[in-house]
Design a protein around this nucleic acid. Structure first.
Length: 95
DNA sequence: CTTCTAACA
DNA sequence: TGTTAGCA
């Protein structure tokens, strides 16, 4: 446990999220504007990235490296989310 | 930290 | 189209 209890919950500022994901801060803001990501905002308007957001960021980086543009990456994320929901549904039915 | 503008590949 | 630098 090298982490502070307040940060161990997986809530990061934009600079921390950028370091963890390897994506630049400006790019993070662009991804949000394009609808790939929706980090929560504090009352003051500062973004709060969760661990899940960082995971998505890594997915996006891999997708872009595969030659997709941001719109395509957004679609893939949608489909993957649907896919996960379907897998869960199948698991329920196959019990 | 935020948003915007502009330049570049 | 997407990234980056600089400004306010």
């Amino acid at each position: 446990m090298t982490e502070d209890p307040t940060t161990a919950s997986g809530l990061y500022g934009i600079s921390a999220a950028a370091r963890l994901s390897g994506v630049g801060e400006q790019a993070l803001r662009l991804y949000e504007r394009k609808g790939l990501l929706t980090p929560v905002r504090t009352a003051g308007g500062t973004r709060r990235y969760t661990d899940d957001d960082v995971t998505v960021l890594r997915r996006v980086a891999a997708l872009l490296a595969d030659g997709l543009n941001l719109t395509g990456a957004r679609r893939v994320l949608e489909l993957e989310a649907d896919n996960d929901r379907l897998r869960l549904r199948i698991a329920e039915l196959t019990d």
